[in-house]
């Protein structure tokens, strides 16, 4: 604080001695700083505009030649230059769905454990450990998924699933075929491991914001821990939890490397979750450098455009939902 005061006094005495020159000098620096920061802010806008324009520009050739059928057909044949995006879109949505199906309950469970059950000295270490999972680069999940998780699933888990569900009507089709190890289900499981730290850290943070008085009054009425979480903590923190889930979903949709390693890269929609498939990001990562011909490249950029739009929609939906909930809570 001393330093700040001395700086200001020095500059104000300077202003007393040579007012016009000093004022002009300060004014110049004020304007320079304001314009520099404003230009940087505008640059952020220009960059996003550039991303969208360049994607549309790059996607235009294939959209012109395929038309709407690009979004509705499954065929992907670079040799005959027939491109349909349905396979990758399906893969992206299904793997993300599996990731959320496993990830959301586990994350909320971990958050409940950390905030309500965990002995105090263990709280920080466990929280930090789970957050470190979020920092591990996705390629590490990929290499681990390929060499550790996939063989384990292939040998131990998938044969079991296949035999358990072999007689059950819908499930026998979902879990059919030979256990490859790699495939849509494995990609979904890897994604679920990757989204858990994201959802958990947000959920835990908002769980901590619940006033102790609210929880204690519920306990005072004789509620069990689960009833307190279910009827006090969850309603109080709903918006924050949804925000965390959307954050995780955004990551699952756009995740590239981990999925590329374990999904098997097949442009087809198989009814079985154990079969290889592909996602938008995996298709781009696998094929882009090998794409020969303008139309092939364009088809991959068009896939990127679709992925960008999907993640944008998720973000916008989350924003809208949060706004609605806030408004309702305000009433």
């Amino acid at each position: 604080m001393n330093h700040i005061a001395s700086v200001s006094i020095r500059s104000s005495t300077a202003a007393l001695d040579v007012p016009a020159a000093a004022l002009r000098w300060h004014n110049l620096r004020d304007v320079a700083l304001r314009e520099a920061t404003r230009l940087s802010a505008i640059l952020v806008l220009v960059l996003l505009g550039g991303v969208i324009v360049s994607l549309i520009y790059g996607a235009a050739p294939v959209l012109r030649s395929e038309g709407l059928s690009f979004f509705t057909t499954e065929a992907w044949n670079p040799v005959t230059e027939k491109f349909g995006a349905l396979g990758p879109i399906y893969g992206t949505l299904v793997t993300s769905f599996i990731a959320m199906l496993i990830g959301i309950p586990v994350s909320i469970g971990v958050a409940i454990f950390i905030t309500e059950l965990c002995p105090r000295p263990l709280k920080r270490p466990i929280g930090t450990a789970i957050e470190l999972l979020a920092g591990i680069p996705s390629i590490i999940y990929g290499i681990w998924g390929l060499f550790v998780l996939a063989p384990f699933l292939q040998k131990e888990v998938q044969p079991l699933i296949i035999s358990v569900f072999s007689g059950v009507p819908v499930f026998s089709r979902l879990f059919a075929g030979p256990p490859y190890g790699i495939g849509v289900l494995t990609a979904g499981i890897i994604l679920s491991i990757m989204v858990v730290p994201y959802i958990t850290s947000v959920t835990r943070d908002v769980f901590e914001t619940v006033p102790a008085v609210l929880k204690e009054s519920a306990y005072g009425l004789g509620c069990t821990t689960w009833e307190v979480v279910r009827n006090v903590v969850m309603p109080y923190t709903r918006t924050g939890v949804i925000g965390g889930i959307m954050l995780g979903l955004g990551r699952a949709l756009g995740e590239t490397m981990a999925v590329t390693f374990v999904i098997g890269n097949a442009h087809r929609i198989a009814p079985s979750l154990l079969a290889p498939g592909t996602t938008i990001s995996a298709a781009i990562a696998n094929e882009f450098t090998e794409a020969t011909g303008a139309l092939y490249t364009s088809a991959l950029i068009a896939l990127g455009l679709i992925l960008f739009l999907i993640t944008f929609l998720v973000l916008a939906a989350a924003r809208y939902l949060l706004l609605q909930l806030e408004r309702r809570a305000g009433k």
């Binding site: 952020v44 960059l47 996003l48 991303v51 994607l55 954050l247 955004g250 949709l253 756009g254 995740e255 590239t256 990001s281 781009i284 990562a285 990127g304 992925l307 960008f308 993640t311 944008f312 998720v314 973000l315």
Partner: peptide, 8 residues
Amino acid sequence: LLSAPSIV
């Protein structure tokens, strides 16, 4: 931009 997939 923050939520845009890095591959895009």
